[in-house]
Nucleic acid binder design. Structure first.
Lengths: 343, 343
DNA sequence: CCTGGCACTCTGCCCAGCTGAGTGCCAGGG
DNA sequence: CCCTGGCACTCAGCTGGGCAGAGTGCCAGG
């Protein structure tokens, strides 16, 4: 890479204007239109020179001679990093968000409302990850005998998530043993982060009669399995209908995106790349997944306290309203966090 | 409506050939191409006469003069009712279905696998409704004291579905009362269909000490609420990426469909219109929901025994391979039923 | 009742020409 | 040294005419 001259303020202003106009009109923007719409204080000819410089540096691009300019991924990147301010939600908007999310009755409902809200606010595709097991703590463990040798194990986390598994025991399970195990499990595990639990319970079978140990071990094994099942991470989607407003060249753009959205794995990885703190914006080719090369992903972690337990975000065309989208994503994440903390 | 002459066999054969060709090529089919591809044993001119008759009766339609014919909704309807045989799955296909579904570990997984499988087999959008509470029976009810006045209620159905609710009780709940209530609930409700349960338990508070009755009533109220929550019916979707192969005239066709797919309510109503027994095919305008006017829905009930507990189906363009789609839908429904019955 | 022949009607495509937007470059002025 | 107005140039997109091909409807004859 050869060294680039630093861009002076006016060139930055021109780039900002180009991004704003292009996002608004979806059409390549020319020098004349630019000076008319923005008070740049210079003539079109001057703007043209700046544009030529911006193009040489790779911030904008011309679809063909005698067309206006379009920002490149690099241009959007600069815009996001240095030229745009996250647009805060207005007070009524905040109230509406708050109100909408407050109506939720359980975790499923909270996530469902969040994802719909986000899709509606940004008019793009919204993605919300369920609070992941790995960063939650145990609220309660319950054991229920369903049949002589069949026990149901229920794990409840502090985020309100409930996981249940059937356990087939090696022999009949006495109610007293079950009660004992239940009590011990809860005393030792409640309040602890999920990943720590296996270590804490390792020696539990030793506290039981030798005859009961196989049963205890079986139950523990299932519990550990449940705890470890990272791949059980779930995701909820909304706003796919907004894809139709993506661009004019349809099937080509939309199909890979729809395919990506069907793959939980892809979405999880996508959200996984979100930095733990602060908002992450991945523009166009910055996305590892090829099908999303012409989309941008704005994502952020959310959590019930200071720590983030899961991620959420939106997926839209690279040509999106970054300040507005980022504002909406941030606001929604903040409120979901509050809701989770309260419940 | 004026009386229509009965269509003779050859006209029916012509209609069948038109449907088959159009489904294959996606292009209006003309008389010459028809006689070449199918052994109709007559000349194009004759076919033309038949086509004119079919058109007059509204079974086919000409986009413009000097174009071939396209089946109308009415044409597809006749085809489905009288001309098509459900295409059974081949033995290897059946094995693959069986094998794929057998790998499921719980209800969520079963539904997820089913919907993906269906989408893949039909290359269309697949919809699967979770086994609904209303037709299931109670397998177990569990009560867990989480805090002095906080009880968790867990309801498990014979289809493997688990619903849990938090109950805030009016006062501290003693463990003995809870155990008593738990026992009574299970004795009276297990094995009963969900809708019957409220009637059976109505008088339960009377069996307790007056002091405990408010608690018992509160728990019961929550239980009944859970039972009644029909709107909790959930649906899983897959194969939306297949929408891109829908037609050439893109955004217009696809957008209303995507919007419909986002609305659980619409999907539920759609599946709700499925007849309880046998397969239902709704073609084009036969769909009540306007956005799906250019799509067909093939749906069927499935269940763990003789009775259907939920519905599943696919949504595709009216121009779809009906015999193949119907075969796939029927086969998948049958196997899911078996899986549910076994678990 | 079927068939071959024929005239007719369209759509889709190609080509040419025009228009307009937008550019790059240059010479002149603050 | 940077900005500006002017000017020639390029090229996508639209328009209109002309052409080819597919497909039809109708008719008279077997």
């Amino acid at each position: 890479m050869y060294s680039e001259r630093p861009l002076d303020d006016r060139k930055l202003a021109v780039l900002r204007a180009i991004v704003q106009d292009y996002v608004g009109t979806e059409e390549p923007v020319g020098s004349k239109a630019l000076v008319e719409r923005h008070n740049l204080g210079v003539s079109p000819a001057t703007v043209r020179n700046d544009m030529a410089a911006l193009e040489e540096d790779g911030y904008i691009h011309q679809p063909h001679t005698s067309a206006g300019r379009i920002p490149t991924d690099k241009g959007y990147r600069l815009f996001v990093d240095r030229l745009a301010e996250v647009k805060p939600m207005t007070a009524p908007e905040r109230r509406a968000i708050r109100h909408f999310l407050d109506g939720a009755v359980d975790l499923d409902d909270t996530v469902a409302r969040t994802v719909r809200l986000l899709a509606q606010l940004t008019r793009q595709v919204a993605v919300v990850q369920y609070p992941s097991l790995s960063r939650s703590t145990v609220r309660h463990v319950e054991l229920v005998a369903l049949a002589p040798a069949k026990v149901m194990l229920v794990l409840i986390t502090n985020t309100g998530r409930v996981e249940q598994r059937m356990v087939d025991c090696p022999g009949t399970v006495g109610e007293t043993v079950l009660a004992d195990l239940r009590a011990k499990l809860n005393t030792q595990a409640v309040g602890r982060p999920l990943p720590e639990v296996p270590g804490l319970l390792e020696d539990l079978p030793a506290a039981f009669e030798p005859a009961d140990r196989p049963t205890v071990s079986t139950v523990l094994a299932t519990l550990f399995e449940t705890l470890a099942e990272q791949n059980e991470e779930r995701i909820m989607l909304a706003g796919t209908a907004n894809l139709t407003r993506f661009g004019h060249d349809f099937p080509l753009t939309i199909q890979p995106v729809l395919e990506a959205l069907e793959e939980q794995v892809v979405l999880l990885r996508l959200l996984g790349e979100t930095a733990d703190a602060g908002m992450t914006v991945r523009i166009g080719h910055e996305n590892a997944y090829e099908g999303l090369n012409s989309t941008s992903v704005v994502s952020v972690g959310y959590g019930s306290g200071d720590q983030s337990v899961a991620k959420l975000g939106v997926i839209g065309p690279t040509r999106m309203d970054y300040p507005g989208t980022m504002g909406a994503v941030r606001a929604v994440a903040r409120y979901v966090g509050q809701i989770l903390a309260e419940s």
